[in-house]
């Protein structure tokens, strides 16, 4: 019997369910970019090394180049287009606004991934998750200071070298949220 190399799946992206006949080899990243024309999610390396493809899967950040599309069928995926501001007149998410105000980017190619990561960082912090630089992991409250932000944002490379402004933007958004 010939083995199936494709499947019909339902991909739920930004709250919209898409039925797709999909090659089993297709990554979530390529499904978004090539099949759904959601090109806000970027491909920098295709190997889980740069973070440009960061999306939220069930609210948690993930490198979409490392996920096969068939493996996320039925899960809720949020891309940069679902974070805010994609439609004309729609409000920006505070993290997006902070990136804009602080010039937390240059070429903008790493930016959707940075923003998705930053949104997740704020949630992870709010949930009390420590990081590798957290001094006292048992502390009542972990302060999201600059070293914490740097560490938590280090899965997202920015070759333009916008880190200094990215840290300022995330700190700003964190302040606005708390």
């Amino acid at each position: 019997m010939e083995r199936a190399t494709a499947a019909t799946i339902t991909l739920t992206v930004n709250g919209v369910a898409h039925s797709l006949d999909i090659d089993h080899r297709t990554t979530l990243l390529d499904a978004l970019r090539e099949r759904l024309d959601l090109t806000g999610t970027k491909k920098g390396c295709d190997h889980g090394q740069c973070g440009a493809c960061t999306v939220l899967v069930e609210g948690r950040r993930a490198d979409s180049c490392l996920l096969l599309a068939v493996a996320v069928a039925g899960k809720a995926v949020t891309t940069i287009e679902g974070i805010g501001g994609a439609a004309a007149g729609e409000a920006l998410h505070p993290v997006q606004q902070a990136f804009l105000d602080h010039d937390g980017y240059q070429c903008g190619y790493c930016t959707p991934g940075q923003i998705c990561s930053a949104v997740a960082v704020l949630d992870e912090h709010a949930a009390g998750w420590p990081s590798a630089v957290t001094g006292d992991v048992g502390a009542e409250e972990i302060v999201l200071d600059e070293p914490e932000i740097r560490e938590r944002m280090s899965g997202n490379l920015c070759r333009c070298g916008a880190y200094v402004s990215i840290v300022a933007a995330v700190a700003d958004a964190a302040g606005a949220q708390s």
Binding site: L38, T39, G40, T41, K42, T79, I80, E81, I83, G84, G85, A86, L92, Q96, Q97, F99, L100, D101, D103, Y105, G108, Y109, T111, P112, I115
Partner: peptide
């Protein structure tokens, strides 16, 4: 701030 800034932070800028 950048003229194309909104496009870049919302993923609407096409490369």
């Amino acid at each position: 701030t950048r003229i194309e800034g909104r496009l870049k932070v919302t993923g609407q800028a096409r490369y």
